[in-house]
């Protein structure tokens, strides 16, 4: 009787194990890991294919580019496109111009946007209207204001200069920076600032010593986004700069279209040369974009 009972229990247990095995493989392996990896690969492919295509195009013979649209080079690999890209067009100068404009406009954006956003959130500066208005300017298509902007920049004599363009980029990126900083600043417990006020600090010192260190990841993230936006900006660069001394990289790329016909190979080489610095930069910064720094400060 007793052995029989034990046997039954064993049989039941084995059945449970067996049943669990099948369902385990179906749910955890097939729909779990495999599914996730496939999805991720598709995603990576979608992002990488254009870049791979540009890279391979820059290494193809010009004649091959004209006859074949293959993803990878079928003929001999050549560096002629790279050499011509730098020789025919002052690419280094364009990259330098872009770097200056992107870097300084980003710094300016952050210097203005961080205190602005802090003031809007903590002290309700401008009521509901000011923040709504800032964001509203971002909704407007830039082309609409391109003529007034050109007129204003010309009026102060900054057309065709890097300063003129970087100031316009500062203005253009301000709304997105305020919008991005908003959530980071809101995440800081109010008590921390109040404690600092009582501890003997002014509003500005509180921003500098307590708030800023806590939103630094957000400031970095916002900075990277503004940098990318400025680096890739085309419309304002097109209408405000018209010479080698102030043309930025996106305008420079378009040079390969006009002067020597459509030079796909050189254009690809130049595009890749322009992408690389910003990729490296984002890669370096992404490690610093950690959150959760305010943990442990206040109860609950």
């Amino acid at each position: 009787m007793e052995t029989n009972g034990t046997f039954e229990i064993h049989a039941e247990a084995e059945e449970i194990v067996a049943r669990k095995d099948v369902s385990y493989y179906v749910s955890h392996i097939l729909f779990g890991r495999v599914f996730r990896i496939v999805l991720l690969l598709l995603f990576i492919l979608a992002i990488l294919i254009p870049i791979v295509y540009i890279a391979s195009t820059s290494l193809k013979e010009p004649i091959e580019i004209r006859v074949s649209g293959a993803l990878l080079p079928t003929g001999p690999i050549t560096t002629i496109n790279w050499i011509k890209a730098f020789r025919n067009v002052p690419l280094v100068r364009y990259l330098f111009n872009s770097t200056v404009v992107a870097f300084f406009s980003t710094i300016l954006v952050l210097v203005i946007a961080v205190p602005t956003t802090y003031s809007i959130i903590r002290f309700k500066t401008g009521g509901w209207f000011f923040p709504a208005w800032i964001l509203g300017t971002y909704v407007m298509p830039p082309i609409v204001v391109s003529i007034p902007i050109f007129a204003m920049v010309k009026m102060v004599g900054l057309q065709n200069t890097l300063l003129g363009l970087l100031l316009v980029h500062t203005m253009a990126n301000m709304p997105i920076a305020v919008w991005l900083m908003d959530s980071y600043i809101r995440a800081i417990p109010k008590e921390l600032e109040q404690a600092a006020w009582i501890d003997g600090y002014s509003k500005f010192d509180t921003l500098r010593r307590v708030v800023f260190p806590l939103i630094r990841p957000g400031v970095l993230a916002t900075g990277v986004i503004c940098l990318i936006l400025s680096w890739n900006e085309f419309l304002f660069a097109l209408i405000l700069t018209y010479g080698v001394q102030s043309n930025t990289f996106p305008i420079g790329i378009s040079r390969y279209v006009g002067e020597h016909g459509l030079q796909f190979g050189e254009m690809s080489a130049a595009a890749l040369a322009g992408i690389v610095p910003i990729y490296i930069l984002v890669f370096l910064f992404s490690r610093n974009l950690v959150e959760g720094l305010t943990r442990g400060g206040v109860k609950g």
């Binding site: 006020w197 003997g200 002014s202 442990g296 400060g297 206040v298 109860k299 609950g300």
Partner: peptide, 18 residues
């Protein structure tokens, strides 16, 4: 403004600088 009052407060929610 709190800075100019010269009082010291211990918050119930601690409010430590993280």
């Amino acid at each position: 403004f709190p800075q100019n009052r010269d009082v010291a407060t211990a918050f119930e929610s601690y409010a430590l600088y993280p």
